[in-house]
């Protein structure tokens, strides 16, 4: 892989990290008035998967979607404006953090009801196949979503019709405060379940960007070759609380040492160290990159803060589509 491409992966992960740290910093100011689910610590999955996709490909996501949105090329200004509830937001202020969208980047949408976008992704893949669009669809889901019926129904149909969809499971061990061992049998293996439905499945370390990239590219290539769906599961860890800007290890639902062990395996820092070691990234370059991202974030926040609120007449707008526009507006 070329140095530039590797640097790009680093840049993407760092950018997501810095954006979310900024949100955590701003959140107590009470200007971001919607729930936020930060994915600090999980950046490698989003970046590694989206690196292999084009803007024509679609990504769908869940409540923890900032990383997916940004990795897919979602507009940063529109994202911050959406968090601030402004009319310049990606959903005109009607969605908030849990309903990000950027159609021009191929980010079809995110919703917080667990597993809800999984069958939607299968539907988008159905369209891709019906219309010979050669478009690959990726849906990001947490391991909690694999407990929902919709996950199983979607896998079954995707395999039955050999659809170009990739189910990317980010296994961060917890659903809010509930650990895996109160939700799934020890004997359970989602990769085995996926194979049972008739699709290939793979598992790897979700904090290793290159491992993610490799598996994702394999699945994407398969989808593009018309070889059907793939299930991939990446182990990773959410650093901060389920919802909100804080750390919550003090609650006692998970052990501090577990958190610290995962923190040691930070996807951003570990990759940074690797690039340094291989002579692909200098201290000066890292400084430059951080400065560049910092400036971009400052600009996006300023844009959000200075943008107008949605007008009252928008309350009752968009309840019904008023003209035939054949699905996604172009």
């Amino acid at each position: 892989m070329e140095a530039q491409a590797l640097q790009q992966l680093y840049y993407q992960m760092l950018r997501i990290r810095m954006v979310e740290e900024k949100i955590a910093e701003l959140y107590p100011g009470q200007e971001i008035r919607c729930p936020v689910h930060l994915s600090t610590g999980e950046e490698a999955v989003a970046v590694g998967v989206c690196a292999g996709l084009s803007s024509e490909d679609y990504v769908l996501s869940n409540h923890r979607s900032h990383a997916h949105y940004l990795a897919k090329g979602g507009n940063l200004r529109a994202m911050f404006a959406e968090l601030y509830g402004k009319v310049t937001g990606c959903s005109m202020g009607k969605g908030g953090s849990m309903h990000l969208v950027d159609l021009s980047a191929g980010f079809l949408g995110a919703v917080p009801v667990v597993a809800n976008t999984i069958p939607l992704a299968v539907g988008a893949a159905f369209t891709s196949k019906q219309k010979n669009q050669e478009r690959t669809i990726v849906v990001f889901l947490g391991e909690g979503a694999t407990e929902e019926g919709a996950f199983h129904e979607s896998m079954n149909f995707a395999a039955l019709h050999s659809l170009p969809v990739i189910f990317v499971c980010e296994n961060n061990l917890y659903s809010v405060y509930s650990p895996l061992n109160v939700r799934q049998s020890k004997a359970r293996d989602n990769c085995v379940i996926a194979r049972g439905y008739g699709m290939e499945s793979f598992r790897d370390n979700g904090n290793n960007i290159l491992a993610v990239l490799e598996l994702a590219e394999r699945a994407i290539q398969k989808a593009r070759n018309g070889e059907g769906p793939t299930f991939v599961e990446f182990s990773t860890y959410r650093w901060r609380e389920h919802c909100g800007p804080n750390y919550d290890n003090n609650l006692g639902y998970r052990a501090e040492h577990e958190f610290l062990e995962w923190k040691q395996r930070c996807p951003v820092i570990s990759f940074e160290q690797r690039l340094r070691r291989d002579g692909l990234l200098s201290d000066a370059e890292i400084c430059q990159i951080k400065e560049r991202i910092g400036t971009e974030i400052e600009d996006a926040v300023a844009f959000a803060k200075s943008s107008p609120w949605p007008d009252e007449n928008l309350l009752l707008a968009h309840i019904y589509a008023e003209r035939r526009i054949d699905g996604v507006a172009t």
Binding site: P119, L120, G123, V328
Partner: peptide
């Protein structure tokens, strides 16, 4: 139903 919605969102 989710599948149908996803296909409707994308042009069918």
């Amino acid at each position: 139903t989710g599948m149908a919605i996803g296909s409707a969102l994308t042009g069918l």
